[in-house]
Structure formats: structure tokens, C-alpha cells
């Protein structure tokens, strides 16, 4: 676009001002438009029809509120019905799965060594019954207070050389106190029990290496 000289631009601006002035409506028409009858009523009607209108909308009727509450009540009833049906579904029993855990090689004390009193050594436990399958429905109630097992130290049954490559498994057995006494084992504190729980450590060769008592 060619650049106008300052004189040309001023002349052009004056001409544009005249064009815009000529395009303007007359004062009479402006006044007539401002004083048009029912103009304010038209504005009010348009405002009332506008969904954004918040202050000019009339108060909601009782029936409108009733319909809203009816929808909310229906949704609540459907939710309660779904919960009830869920509770009525047949509960599927958990499938017990026995699992042996590989345990590190136990450190067996030598005959002349004192048995270790260190309880912090990782003691293998047997999860005899462990639920692995997902269970639908309500879960069985868990005991509020978890039972804590107290175990004695492992007592070697036979002398095994510390080869460093011996693994093993841990199985839980129950023996009578009289059997223990006949084998020369010290009875646990609760000797009046009918059955005494014990963990027997089996080596890879199937021989029992050590035993500990569980209370």
C-alpha cells in the first residue's frame, strides 16, 4: 500500500470524518429509537427467556422441586437395590492352597556352642493355608487381634557339617508332650497341653535337621 504524504493523509482523514458523519443516523431517529414504546418490555422479555438469567427468573415451583427430589430418590433406591443384590450373591469359599517356602540354610549350633538367642534371625514360616483365589462377596471376618506365635530356638536333631549349600523346608507337626519327653526333649512351658506344635526343619535329603517348639 502506497504511503500518503502528511498533507494527503490529513485531507484523507478529513474526508473520512465527513463520510462517517454522513453515515450516522439523524438525532431524531436516535431519540425515536431510545423512546420507542415497549422497548424496555422487549428487553425484559428477552432477559426472561435467556437461560443465563439468574436474578430475573421466578422462584422454582413446588412441582419443579418435587421432580428433582423424585430423581434423587430414584437414584438412591437403585443404589440400595444394587447393594442388596450384591449381598445376596452366593459366597464362594476360598480355595486353600498349601505352599512351601524355601528357607535359607539354618545355622546349626555346634554341640559345644550355646544356642543362639537371637530372635531377629529370619525364621521361616509356613503359610499352610493361604487364599490365593479372589473371593467374591463379603470377606470373612478377620480377628481383631492377631495371634502372635512364640517359638523356641532350633534344637539340632543330628549333627550336620556346615557345608554352606544345604537348603531345606519347614513343616509344622503336632506331637504329644509324652512323646517329646520320651525322646528327651525339654518340654515347653505349657506342658499340660494335649498337643504341642513344633516346626521341623527338613534338609534337601529329607532328613530332619532341627526342631523348634511353637507356643
Amino acid at each position: 500500500m502506497n504511503k500518503l504524504s502528511p498533507e494527503q493523509d490529513r485531507a484523507n482523514e478529513a474526508l473520512c470524518r465527513r463520510i462517517f458523519a454522513a453515515a450516522s443516523a439523524s438525532e431524531e431517529r436516535m431519540d425515536a429509537a431510545a423512546e420507542a414504546p415497549f422497548l424496555y418490555q422487549r428487553i425484559r422479555n428477552e432477559i426472561a427467556q435467556n437461560p443465563k438469567c439468574t436474578t430475573a427468573t421466578p422462584a422454582r415451583s413446588f412441582f419443579a422441586d418435587w421432580f428433582a427430589w423424585r430423581w434423587a430418590g430414584g437414584a438412591l433406591a437403585a443404589l440400595l437395590l444394587a447393594i442388596g443384590l450384591w449381598q445376596l450373591l452366593p459366597q464362594r469359599a476360598a480355595t486353600p492352597v498349601a505352599r512351601f517356602e524355601s528357607v535359607p540354610k539354618p545355622t546349626l549350633p555346634t554341640p559345644e556352642a550355646e544356642p543362639s538367642n537371637d530372635k531377629s534371625v529370619a525364621t521361616p514360616t509356613l503359610h499352610a493355608l493361604q487364599k490365593t483365589a479372589p473371593v467374591r462377596g463379603r470377606r470373612p471376618a478377620q480377628p481383631r487381634q492377631r495371634q502372635v506365635e512364640v517359638t523356641s530356638d532350633f534344637i539340632p536333631l543330628i549333627y550336620v557339617a556346615d557345608s554352606g549349600s544345604v537348603g531345606g523346608h519347614l513343616i509344622r507337626i503336632e506331637v504329644t508332650p509324652s512323646t517329646l519327653a520320651s525322646l528327651g526333649f525339654p518340654l515347653p512351658s505349657a506342658s499340660d497341653k494335649k498337643w504341642v506344635k513344633a516346626d521341623v526343619m527338613l534338609g534337601d535329603d529329607g532328613l530332619a535337621r532341627a526342631i523348634r517348639f511353637v507356643e
Binding site: F20, A23, S24, A25, S26, R29, M30, A32, A33, A34, A36, L39
Partner: peptide
Amino acid sequence: AGRFFPRQEQIE
């Protein structure tokens, strides 16, 4: 509005 539109209905 009258600067842009000449007719009364347009201004209204």
C-alpha cells in the same frame, strides 16, 4: 448505535 445503523429498527 446510530453511528453505525441508519434505521430506527436497527438502533432499537
